[in-house]
């Protein structure tokens, strides 16, 4: 199996606290990998390292055989690594359409041009319309991003990410904070991307149930360390995981059930 991205002994510390501790990961190409771990396990921090928002204090990241540890976020995006943010991160005063269009423009490599051909304009508009439809935001196209409901913002974020056409998609808790009715729509969108088979997806989630069926490969992060990895079945059976992570979750579940 070939790997799209690998990390080797990746670590980062904030002051005294080591948040990511010698994590060595391999992301199989064209597969769906999910990272699960409880709150504060270091999942978002790991993403920030992969996408370049943070620099590791130790270790390397390799993407398509190239060491990218020293590259800026923008350079990594242009290599094909796209990410979403756990806390919604949009151009809040621009319209929904314009938010997506900026991603599409970036994917088309239009960066410093002062003129845009009609053909390019049409191509961008069509693509934006398609993405709007995909995430069910067509009706909100001309609304300012700041005016959207939370779930809509998440969907906009996903549309922007797809518009970027990344080879590696990093999704940070795409269903966080959205209402229960909206969750299936978002999962549906993710399922659609997955079916495309040309993208490699890495998704963060702290509820294992959410991604069990989506994932080809699962990684458990606990206190910044890689606790276990394998197929979802293997991981669920793993005793370490059961005691450290699932144990807590089951307790939550029974507590929720009895109340």
């Amino acid at each position: 199996m070939s790997y799209l991205m690998e990390t080797n002994e990746l670590s980062i510390a904030f002051g005294e606290q080591t948040v990511i501790d010698r994590v060595s990961l391999k992301l199989p190409k064209h597969r769906f990998t999910s990272i699960i771990g409880p709150n504060g396990a270091g999942k978002t921090t790991l993403f920030n390292l992969l996408s370049g928002q943070l620099r590791p204090s130790h270790g390397t990241i390799t993407y398509q055989g190239q060491v990218i540890t020293h590259l800026s976020p923008a350079a990594r995006t242009r290599l094909g690594i796209g990410r979403s943010f756990q806390l919604t991160n949009l151009f809040s005063k621009l319209s929904v359409r314009e938010n997506i269009r900026l991603a599409v423009q970036a994917a088309h490599g239009i960066r410093f041009q002062l003129f845009m051909s009609k053909a390019e304009q049409v191509a961008q508009t069509e693509e934006v319309d398609r993405l709007l439809e995909l995430v069910l935001l067509t009706k909100k196209a001309d609304v300012q991003a700041s005016q959207l409901a939370h779930g809509e913002k998440r969907k906009l974020e996903i549309a922007m990410l797809i518009g970027l056409k990344p080879e590696l998609l990093l999704l940070d808790e795409p269903t966080a904070g959205i209402s229960l009715e909206e969750v299936p729509a978002v999962l549906q969108v993710i399922e659609t991307i997955k079916q495309d088979k040309s993208t490699t997806i890495l998704l963060i989630e702290h509820k294992m149930d959410m991604v069990k069926s989506l994932s080809d490969h699962m990684v458990v992060l606990f206190h910044g360390e890689l606790l276990a990895e394998g197929t979802p079945q293997d991981v669920m059976k793993n005793e370490l995981v059961q005691s450290a992570y699932l144990g807590g979750l089951y307790k939550d579940a029974t507590a929720a059930g009895s109340s």
Partner: peptide, 27 residues
């Protein structure tokens, strides 16, 4: 024309949210 061009739109995006613009690959 400058601010409405593809380049100008990126300027506006940067003014709004620099980190996001960078994550889209704009330097």
């Amino acid at each position: 024309h400058f601010v409405q061009s593809p380049l100008g739109k990126v300027l506006k995006a940067i003014g709004q949210n620099e980190q996001r613009a960078e994550a889209l690959g704009y330097q």
